[in-house]
Design a protein around this nucleic acid. Sequence first.
DNA 1: CTGTTGACTTAGG
DNA 2: ACCTAAGCCAACA
Length: 118
Amino acid sequence: MKVPHEQRKDQQLLARQQLYQTIAAIPSGKVASYGQLATLAGQTGAARWVGWCLRHLPKDSSLPWHRIITASGKLAFSPATEGYLRQREKLEKEGVQLHNHKVSMKQFQWQTHDDTPF
DNA sequence: CTGTTGACTTAGG
DNA sequence: ACCTAAGCCAACA
């Protein structure tokens, strides 16, 4: 039996792993929002937490972090920043085009009907 | 322990 | 369509 402190730590770790797993499940060419991922990872309403996790992502991580955008269809980075350009580059490489700093709703929400892996 | 900050979201103006 | 205010979670000073 662990002390509550450690249980909480384990919970957070588990949540992060679930989040990573969810992110990894995003198909190429599609994108998802922060809040959406938070919900799928069992942390409904924790969009900022998702942002925090991505910010502290290991450099060598192979997660498709670039497929994560805001709920409004825009990139979370400010335009003209390095992060914005990197993400945009990766997205376009996968066929996701940005129209005036925004992503088309069609590529948004990767889980269209019943092909959800959950 | 309070306040701030950040790869966010939603509801109202 | 853009701006604000509140709410959200974790980390840091």
